[in-house]
C-alpha cells in the first residue's frame, strides 16, 4: 500500500460534539495502515489537549488519556497553532502532551505539504 502523508486537522472542542473522540478512533485505526500521520490542532481543537479533563458528572467517557497513548502507535507529530493558543489564553503547561508550536504561516505550508487532510 502507498504511504501517504496524512494530516488530521482538529478544530473543535471536546464533548460539545463527538468529533474529538472520532478523530482519536481514526488516528488509532489509521496508524495500522502504516501511513505517515501528523495531528494538527487549530481553533477550538486546542481545548482537546487541556489537562485535567474530568467528565464524571456529565457521564461521557473521558477520552483525553488517549492523546498520551499516541506515542505507542508511532503518532508523534502533534502540532498546535501558536496564535490559537494565545487567543485562548493557553500555555504549553496547560496541555497534557508535548506538542510542537507552529505559527499560522508555517501551518499554511504544513497543510500544503500533506497528501491528505482529514478534518474533524
Amino acid at each position: 500500500m502507498k504511504i501517504k502523508k496524512c494530516l488530521y486537522v482538529n478544530r473543535r472542542a471536546p464533548y460539545g460534539t463527538s468529533y474529538a473522540l472520532e478523530a482519536i478512533d481514526m488516528v488509532l485505526i489509521g496508524s495500522a495502515f502504516d501511513q505517515d500521520i501528523s495531528l494538527l490542532f487549530i481553533d477550538d481543537g486546542l481545548f482537546q489537549l487541556k489537562k485535567g479533563q474530568d467528565t464524571a458528572d456529565v457521564e461521557i467517557k473521558n477520552h483525553s488519556p488517549a492523546y498520551r497513548a499516541f506515542e505507542m502507535y508511532d503518532v508523534e507529530k502533534i502540532y498546535v497553532s501558536k496564535e490559537a493558543m494565545a487567543a485562548r489564553g493557553l500555555k504549553r503547561a496547560d496541555l497534557l502532551v508535548d506538542v510542537e508550536l507552529l505559527s499560522d504561516s508555517r501551518i499554511k505550508e504544513l497543510m500544503d505539504e500533506h497528501d491528505i487532510i482529514f478534518s474533524f
Binding site: M1, K2, K4, C6, D25, M26, I29, G30, A32, F33, Q35, I116, F118
Partner: peptide, 10 residues
C-alpha cells in the same frame, strides 16, 4: 469499519 475510509483514501 473506519479502515474502509482510510484504505479508500489511500
Amino acid at each position: 469499519g473506519l479502515g474502509q475510509l482510510i484504505e479508500g483514501v489511500v
